[in-house]
Design a protein around this nucleic acid. Structure first.
Lengths: 205, 205
DNA sequence: TAGATTGTTAATCGATTAACAATC
DNA sequence: TAGATTGTTAATCGATTAACAATC
C-alpha cells in the first residue's frame, strides 16, 4: 500500500476531527467540509481517502463511521501497539497525559527514568520504573515503539539501548537528531525548531 | 529571500548542532559532516547554506562561527521576538522549560491560564498570570508570537483572541487544527499524530 | 600537481492540484 | 432532469538530488 508520511499525518488528523464530529451527531461529511476543517483542498482529501480505500456517495458524501473505521484499519495495529517512554521530566509527563485514553490501540507499558527521586512515582496513572528495567520490559511486552523525552545529552545512548532491545519506531522529543540503523523509523518532535520557524516565517509572511 | 519552511527547519537544526560543536573546539565543518549529523545529503546542506549566503572554503569547509552567525541573521529577529504562552498545564510547563535559556532572541513575556489555582504560580521562572491580562500584555510588549498549550476545546477561542490582539505567529500544541486569517502563520506540533505516524509507518518499513 | 570540496545549475523525484467523466 | 459530488488520471508545482566547473 505504501502510504506516504504526509498522507498518514493527514489521516490521523481527519480521524481525530471525525471522532469529535461523530459525537456531535452528524452522520456524513463532504470532502470539502473535511478540507475546510484542516485548511486543505477537497481534492487532497478525496485522494487521501481513496488511498485508504473508503468510498463515498456522490450525493451524500462520506459516512463518518465508515471513515473512522477505514482510517483506523490503516493507522492502527489490530494487535495494539505497546509503547515505552524514557524520561519522566516535564515533557515526559506532558506526553503521558496527552496519550492517556486518547487511542485505545496505543498502550503505554512502561515509563522509565534514571533519577531515583522519580522512580516509583505515579504519573498520570503510570508508575515510573528504573531505567535498569528497560530491556526486560521491552522484551517481556514485545515493545515496538518508544518515546524519548530525556535531556539532549542522553538521547542517543538511550536510543541505542532501545534499538538494541528491539524497538523499531521512536518518537524523539529531545532536541538532537538521532542516528539509527536501517529499518528503524524516527519521528522528530522538535519544539525549539517549531518556535524558531514561526518567529522566522512570521516576519516574511 | 523567501526561505522555504523545510529549509528553515534544517537551518535551525544545523545551528543547534554547530553551537554544541563550537563548544567542542572544532573550528570548521565540511558539508558532508553536517549532512551525516542530520542524516541528510551534503548537496542539500550546501544548498541550504547557499540560501543563507554564508560561504565556505574549497579545502577547509565552512567556519563554524561564520555559519552560526549567518544562520542567526536569517532565523532571529535582531530586535528579539516577544512570546506569550497560553495554558500552564503539563505541556505549557514543558514548553517553558524547553525554551528557557536556549535562544536569547526568544523572550517569554507572559504565561497565562484561566485556572485560579495556577495564577500567581512561578513556572521555570515565569509567573503565571490570569488570562484576563492577555490582551493588555500583548499590546504593552508588542508580542508577535504565541504558544498555545491549552486543552483542545479552548484552543480556537484562545487563538481568536491572540490574533485579534495582534499576534502574527502561533505554535499550536493543542490537538486541533486552528482557523486563522490570511497573514497569520500557524505551526502545528502534534504529539498524537507523531505517535500514530510512527506506529503506522514502523509496521511498513 | 592531484585530490577534495565548494557553489550552483540542470535533472529527477514526489507530492499537490486541476480537471473531468461517472454517479446519484 | 439539473446540479453537486465522488473517484481517478493528467498536469503542475516544489523540493531534493545529481552533476560538474571552479577553487584551493
Amino acid at each position: 500500500m505504501a502510504l506516504s508520511g504526509r498522507t498518514v499525518e493527514r489521516l490521523s488528523v481527519y480521524r481525530r476531527l471525525l471522532v469529535m464530529q461523530g459525537q456531535s451527531g452528524e452522520e456524513s461529511v463532504y470532502s470539502h467540509q473535511l478540507a475546510e476543517m484542516v485548511s486543505g483542498t477537497a481534492a487532497q482529501v478525496r485522494r487521501d481517502l481513496m488511498e485508504v480505500g473508503v468510498t463515498g456517495h456522490s450525493k451524500r458524501g462520506y459516512r463518518v463511521a465508515n471513515l473512522i473505521e477505514g482510517i483506523s484499519k490503516v493507522l492502527d495495529d489490530p494487535a495494539g501497539t505497546r509503547i515505552v517512554l524514557v524520561g519522566a521530566g516535564d515533557l515526559g509527563r506532558a506526553a503521558l497525559g496527552f496519550i492517556k485514553g486518547r487511542n485505545a490501540a496505543l498502550r503505554i507499558v512502561g515509563a522509565f527514568d534514571n533519577d531515583p527521586s522519580k522512580i516509583g512515582r505515579v504519573i498520570h496513572g503510570y508508575r515510573c520504573a528504573s531505567i535498569d528495567e528497560l530491556e526486560r520490559v521491552i522484551a517481556a511486552e514485545q515493545v515496538e515503539v518508544a518515546i524519548i523525552t530525556t535531556p539532549a545529552g542522553v538521547a542517543q545512548p538511550v536510543c541505542d539501548r532501545l534499538v538494541a532491545a528491539g524497538v523499531r519506531g521512536i518518537v524523539n522529543f529531545a532536541p538532537t537528531p538521532l542516528q539509527v540503523p536501517e529499518g528503524v523509523w524516527v519521528e522528530r518532535v522538535d519544539i525549539a525548531t517549531a518556535l524558531e520557524k514561526v518567529t522566522c516565517l512570521t516576519r516574511s509572511v
